[in-house]
Every structure is written in C-alpha cells, then in structure tokens.
Amino acid sequence: MTTMQTSTARPATMQTPARAVYKDTRSLWERLRTNRNWLALWFMLPTAAFLILFLAYPLGLGVWMSFTDERIGRTGVFIGLENYEWLWNDSIFWLSVFNTLLYTIIASIIKFAVGLYLALLLNRHMPFKAIIRAIVLIPFIVPTVLSAIAFWWIYDPQFSIVSWSLIKLGLISNNINFLGDPNMARASVIFANIWRGVPFVAITLLAGLQTVSPSLYEAATLDGATDWQRFRYITYPLLTPIIAVVMTFSVLFTFTDFQLVWALTRGGPVNATHLMATLSYQRGILSGRLGEGAAIATAMIPFLLAAIAISWFGMQRRKWQQGSDND
C-alpha cells in the first residue's frame, strides 16, 4: 500500500534514487508509526471503525438476513434467494415498488421546481429578508411525525379543515375523501412530502446562488442579456454542482421516506400508498418476518445506487470541474 501510494504521488524518477541511498534502520513499528501514509491511515481508523460498526455492519447484517428466514426472537437458516423469489411474484411488493418510484419521481421533480423558484425569489433584495428566509425553513424543522399528524388532521375524512372550508364556501357538498381513495391518497401523501421537502431544496440552492459572483450578472446585463439568458447561461451552470448534491439527497430522502406515510395512512387504503420502507417495516417488525422485511429493504439498494449514479455521473462530470473550460 505504501509503495503504491508513493509511486502515484510522485514521479517515479525522483523516487528511485532516494530510496537506494537512504537505508532505514528503524524498527518496523517505528516506521509504521511515523510514515506519512501510514499516519493518515491511523488517523482514519477511528472514523473507519465508527462507519464499519454503525453503517457497514448493520447494512451487511441486513443483506445477510434477507437470505435467511429469520424471525423475531430466533435466528433463521440460510434459504438463499427464496425471499426474493417470493417477492418477485408478490403483487403487493411490486405495488410498493411502483408507489415508491411514483412518490420519489413526482415529489422530487416538484420539490426541485418549487425549491429553485423559491430560492430565486429569496435571493432578491427585499425587506425582512432574514426573517422570511427563516420562515421558509419551518416545515423542515418541524419533526416529521408532528407535521404528519397535522396533515393527518388536514386529510381527516370527517374533520378535514379543507373539506370544511370548501363546504362552508358552498363549493362542494361532501367531505373530500383524501386518504380513502387510492389515487387521492397518493396525491395527498406526495403533497405532504413536497411541503416538507421544499425548504431543504430552496435553502440549499439559495446558498449556491449566493456564491455566484454579482460581477457575472453585471457583465451579462451590460451585454444585454435577458433575465432568462442570465439564468440559463450563468445561474444554472454555476448551480449545477449544488443541484446535483441537493437532488441526490432529496431523492434519497424521498425514496427512503417512512414516517410521513406511516403516520398518515399505514400504507393504506388497500396498500395504495405502501412504500418499500413501510412494507418492509410491516412485514419485518410488525409481522415478525425479519428475513422478508430485510429482503424488501435490500431491494431498495439498487434503486438508491442508481439514483446516486445518475446524479454523480450525469451532472458532475463537467469539464470545468476538473479545471478546464466548459465548452
């Protein structure tokens, strides 16, 4: 490892003679202790141990569990791909995959559009700028379960404030069945997720916008660029790395969302809002079939990896990021 790293770090020609002249008389331990490359390794060890213990190990355990028929309270035996074969033919599982993709794609697109729009608005000079920016963050600060309960009341089949207001205004005659109808329920949970997710996107993009040098806009304005042209040729390209990061996170959060749906619908009505995460919980923890629950959770990994891959390879491979012109 040492030689590999040093040889890539320095041109080989410089390195070889130096080695031949200098004869190291220190003990192996001494050398390991003081060698720069090894030293870096030592410094990384605590973090690595932390990550392995709390991230890699549980992940590995989960994946392993998905190949067993483990139930709560007793260890399982290895059953190979049986859990996956079963899920492959399970209509509820596929429904949950469909729901998760629908939920993620629609919510992410809208969150991005609304978030970007909000960020552009907030980037302007206006009175009470700081306070308004702080207010925007509220949905993000409120604990998910709390906001879910608020939405649960808003969507209540009997006591919904929305239904009540519209009835009082004489616009509708019956309560809206927000969570009782499959498509309405999907729309409702997606809306709640968007409400919650927009501030994260907006504030992060706003941070990105503030790093764009005003001189670029000045120059563009002098050149007679329109608003749209300034956005398209200055803001957007400079914002791309931030967009890549923020959307990767946003997609990951949305894909693995659990609390909101669980508090609102428990995956109902008739499983129309079951996400992979909620189904995994229902089967793994509530029903006690840890193996199957783990298989559902593991099945999320390829989707997550794909999401990461798309944003990192698709959006970040820009020449200008590696120091050359972006032409």
Binding site: P157, Q158, N177, G180, A185, P269
Partner: peptide, 21 residues
C-alpha cells in the same frame, strides 16, 4: 360513511363523539 378505507384505530372514536358516526 366515506373514508373508512383509510381509518385507523382512532378515526371512529373521533367521528362518533362528534356525532357524525
């Protein structure tokens, strides 16, 4: 009454006590 497909354990308590169920 509409919405029972989405009810959890507490919906009927609320609606009954409010005189809607």
């Amino acid at each position: 009454v509409p919405g029972t497909a989405s009810w959890n354990d507490s919906n009927n308590n609320k609606a009954f006590l409010a005189g809607q169920l």
